[in-house]
Amino acid sequence: GKMTGIVKWFNADKGFGFITPDDGSKDVFVHFSAIQNDGYKSLDEGQKVSFTIESGAKGPAAGNVTSL
């Protein structure tokens, strides 16, 4: 299901970062391709987001990332 969290950091040049889930679980990798907006796909440190957990090739990653 949907989770919420805070963006820990995001490197716009490399197109990835990490989200710290509100439930205290392990930080989740986020790739820019998972960001659900029409414009420039980037996130800001400290931004609140909702997301799902998808299993990627390198382990769990955030999917369906939407800013709240």
Score class of each variant (00 low, 15 high):
residue 1 G to R: 08
residue 1 G to Q: 04
residue 1 G to D: 14
residue 3 M to G: 07
residue 4 T to M: 08
residue 5 G to E: 00
residue 6 I to H: 12
residue 6 I to W: 07
residue 6 I to E: 10
residue 7 V to T: 04
residue 7 V to D: 01
residue 8 K to Q: 05
residue 9 W to P: 01
residue 10 F to R: 02
residue 10 F to P: 01
residue 11 N to M: 05
residue 12 A to L: 09
residue 12 A to K: 14
residue 12 A to M: 11
residue 13 D to A: 15
residue 13 D to Y: 14
residue 14 K to W: 13
residue 14 K to S: 07
residue 14 K to Q: 10
residue 14 K to Y: 07
residue 16 F to Y: 15
residue 17 G to M: 01
residue 17 G to W: 00
residue 17 G to H: 00
residue 18 F to Q: 07
residue 20 T to I: 12
residue 20 T to Y: 05
residue 21 P to F: 00
residue 22 D to Q: 06
residue 22 D to I: 06
residue 22 D to W: 03
residue 23 D to M: 04
residue 23 D to I: 08
residue 24 G to I: 02
residue 24 G to T: 05
residue 25 S to W: 03
residue 25 S to H: 10
residue 26 K to E: 12
residue 26 K to H: 11
residue 26 K to W: 04
residue 27 D to N: 05
residue 27 D to G: 04
residue 27 D to L: 03
residue 29 F to K: 08
residue 29 F to R: 06
residue 29 F to L: 05
residue 30 V to A: 03
residue 30 V to Y: 03
residue 31 H to D: 05
residue 32 F to G: 10
residue 33 S to C: 03
residue 33 S to E: 07
residue 33 S to T: 13
residue 35 I to P: 03
residue 35 I to H: 02
residue 36 Q to G: 09
residue 37 N to Q: 15
residue 37 N to C: 15
residue 38 D to P: 11
residue 39 G to S: 11
residue 40 Y to K: 14
residue 41 K to F: 06
residue 41 K to C: 06
residue 42 S to Q: 12
residue 43 L to N: 00
residue 43 L to K: 00
residue 44 D to F: 12
residue 45 E to C: 15
residue 45 E to K: 15
residue 46 G to P: 00
residue 47 Q to N: 06
residue 47 Q to Y: 03
residue 47 Q to I: 05
residue 48 K to S: 11
residue 49 V to D: 00
residue 49 V to K: 02
residue 50 S to G: 08
residue 50 S to I: 05
residue 52 T to F: 09
residue 52 T to P: 00
residue 52 T to K: 08
residue 53 I to D: 02
residue 53 I to Y: 12
residue 54 E to N: 14
residue 54 E to A: 11
residue 54 E to F: 14
residue 56 G to M: 08
residue 56 G to V: 05
residue 56 G to I: 03
residue 59 G to P: 04
residue 59 G to S: 05
residue 59 G to F: 05
residue 60 P to A: 08
residue 60 P to H: 09
residue 61 A to L: 12
residue 62 A to G: 03
residue 62 A to K: 02
residue 63 G to R: 15
residue 65 V to D: 01
residue 67 S to P: 15
residue 67 S to V: 15
residue 68 L to I: 14
